[in-house]
Design a protein around this nucleic acid. Sequence first.
DNA 1: TTGTAGGCGTTATCAC
DNA 2: GTGATAACGCCTACAA
Lengths: 339, 339
Amino acid sequence: MATMQEVAIRAGVSIATVSFVVNGTKNVSPGTREKVTTAMADLGFRNNVVARALASRRTRILALLFPALEHRLGSTALQFVSSAAARASELGYHLVLWPAGTTADDLTELLSGGLADGVLVMEVKMTDPRIEKLVEMDVPFLSIGRTSDPSALPFVDMDFETTVENGLDYLQGLGHRRIGLVIEDLEGTSMDGYGPHIRVERSFRSGMMRRKLTPVVVACGPSARGGREAARMLLEQDPKLTAVMIMKDDSTFGLVSGLTSAGLSVPDDVSILAVASSNESGAATEPVLSTMNAPGHELGGLAVEALVARLDTGSTELPHVLLPCVLNVADSTVVARER
Amino acid sequence: MATMQEVAIRAGVSIATVSFVVNGTKNVSPGTREKVTTAMADLGFRNNVVARALASRRTRILALLFPALEHRLGSTALQFVSSAAARASELGYHLVLWPAGTTADDLTELLSGGLADGVLVMEVKMTDPRIEKLVEMDVPFLSIGRTSDPSALPFVDMDFETTVENGLDYLQGLGHRRIGLVIEDLEGTSMDGYGPHIRVERSFRSGMMRRKLTPVVVACGPSARGGREAARMLLEQDPKLTAVMIMKDDSTFGLVSGLTSAGLSVPDDVSILAVASSNESGAATEPVLSTMNAPGHELGGLAVEALVARLDTGSTELPHVLLPCVLNVADSTVVARER
DNA sequence: TTGTAGGCGTTATCAC
DNA sequence: GTGATAACGCCTACAA
């Protein structure tokens, strides 16, 4: 790991010149450029990220905050991360994942050195201390998901309203009129107030009302057991239910098995539509689930693009990107049949 | 974000003194320490990580490389990451996840600046270019998992041999003699040659032989479909199978359903033992699976400890830590019944 | 116990 | 087109 100094000496030029060719900051005559590049190659020069960061106040590093570690990184989150990393790389940035707690303390510590040029925040809650901290510290950021009042903040997010609406349209088109919704039970957890569930429930209720239908909503505990319990509660509220939308991948199997245990067949008696899911998750169940796939891939790329645009161009406009899930019909949804 | 300089001025001391109290590098009289700390508090001083890194050639950052992004981060990997992050934090380090590709190129770029003091490598393959690169660059690292010849390298890993042995003991103790193994089919993928599957298969075969039993091994494709297919293949090889060990969480449900479709009941006809799994994964199936839980939590902590020990004490000894999975008996394993 | 001053490896502003 | 040369913010002998 040679330094610029060493390269400069070997190339017989000044250290400044080396810097110019490394960064393309200024015009350098083909001759000296040649000398410098071969010197770099000979010495195996690698620009020192830390020194560069100190001098230029930019690292070309993007930090992706995720309170990970509390629940598993689902396949949609992974899609998001991976496409974000890819896009960042294309744009000349590096993406690192920061397993920061939900609190904002140790976050401060790292950002204060300018270790990252910008920050992506995942798993945003309706009111999120991290966001507040970022605003306070004046660090360029972009959130995936929205706080309760996101109008003044840059974000990309799933368009839950449209997603639910499309889902209801689809199910209604199949003749379903008694439709239930299963969402995750996050009361009392650190994820209480988490946006998606709230937005989905709200959209579901209003969408059903608008259709003159009665919304049946159930909160679902963890894992398969939670799903089975949800099935029981759903049937308790409406024994004649013919369709269920569920936004909780790890409980979907339990839901199916709960319905089956109750003597109902999926999809013949009850259709199931998994929301904010993926083909991969859908394939894990039998029958293969019809899903509304989370646009994790697109959002990841868009998030990075928006953030980098802000960084590179200094553009100050606030990106507000909303993408709905896209319907993928498989084997768990069929035409409604009265019971 | 005040600088040390500013703090020094406000406290009426030299910048060096501030540095001493910040780092505890030297003794400082209670009086001046007091002045400095209040000055820091007043100004909201935050140590600049980048500057510190440049001057001291250490960042107190640990990079965790994972080729993530190719398959989802399972719950055991997550356990690992989260406990590693926690332990790092306790030891005064920060853990960042680096979604580096399997290749070693962009890895070089970041490490060359000394951005991370040390590196943890996950998902190590039998022969791994990243490891080679790290050795070449002389970056302190520790791998989770082993290359094919790890004797000269520091690692922590699951003890697959013991795990399989214990699993076989347990099943044999229940009277099972016709036991199958399902492992992931990684041929031709970038994970081909990946250690765990190879080690597990090897241990299984030799363990069965030693018991004078006939090993039945099946490679399993992705998702539930793969599991069903695996069930078919297993029964094809031995229709009288009474137990199956499976190391592939996302296909376990498919395995169960495949066996069920074949008219076999789990666990009455066939016991199932999920290896390198977790209670969480086990609960996602019906019946709840007996599992051999991956020691992800312990390994995460140990990995960080070992790496930090090497960093802080300059200790040069090579940690070779092996931990077996621990058996958790649930509802999918019962006494063998002849068919 | 505290202060002085010379780096750490780049970037960037001026001159030339 | 190139080359000095201050920063960047902190660490750390070495002095005092």
